[in-house]
């Protein structure tokens, strides 16, 4: 985590430019820290330390304040995401409908190595509890079997993908 993550050079430049522009639009004001962190995370996927340092300098904020803010809010990630993400809703309705068991099942599932598994609180679909959001798409009335199928589907797709490549 010593450097700001780079992909291709051009994309890197572009991301940096977008971030710079976003900061300029807010007049490099410290008040916009949270907005800027959102933008940075959208661009880079997470918030590595060098990126935080850069933001701190630009917004003229003490680095400890920037890290303090970045770690206060749960949506900010200091570590990169895995290939896939699953968010198990543990709002009241989903908890009552067995969300915890789904979460545990997912965490312990041998096929979930590629998945960042997290819990969330009420995604607004309580009537269809329990809810799991897989890669941004909500699955309704989830059962252990449905999740199993979803993981397998992805696994299969992943392996056919590599097979085709050879």
């Amino acid at each position: 985590m010593d450097e700001i993550p780079q992909t291709a050079g051009a994309a890197h430049d572009e991301r940096e430019q977008i971030l710079d522009r976003a900061m300029a639009r807010h007049h490099n004001s410290g008040d916009a820290l949270i907005e800027i962190l959102h933008t940075a995370q959208q661009l880079y996927g997470y918030l590595p330390a060098p990126l935080l340092k850069k933001i701190a300098r630009r917004l003229m904020l003490p680095p400890s304040r920037v890290l303090g803010v970045a770690t206060f809010y749960h949506l900010f990630r200091l570590e990169p995401l895995r290939k896939h993400s699953a968010v198990v809703c543990l709002g009241t309705a989903c908890y009552e409908a067995g969300g915890t068991e789904l979460l545990e099942g997912l965490r312990q599932h041998p096929g979930s190595g590629d998945w960042s598994v997290a819990s969330g609180r009420c995604v607004g679909s309580c009537g269809l509890a329990p809810i799991v959001i897989c890669d941004g798409r909500a699955m309704a009335r989830v059962t252990a079997d449905k999740l199993e199928a979803r993981l397998r589907e992805d696994h299969d797709r992943g392996s056919t993908g590599t097979d085709a490549g050879h």
């Binding site: 330390a49 701190a56 680095p63 400890s64 890290l67 303090g68 770690t71």
Partner: peptide
């Protein structure tokens, strides 16, 4: 500053 929140709050210096 303080990093984290709730029971995970910690005093930090600079970027931790």
């Amino acid at each position: 500053d303080v990093a984290g929140r709730g029971r995970n709050s910690r005093i930090i210096s600079d970027l931790g």
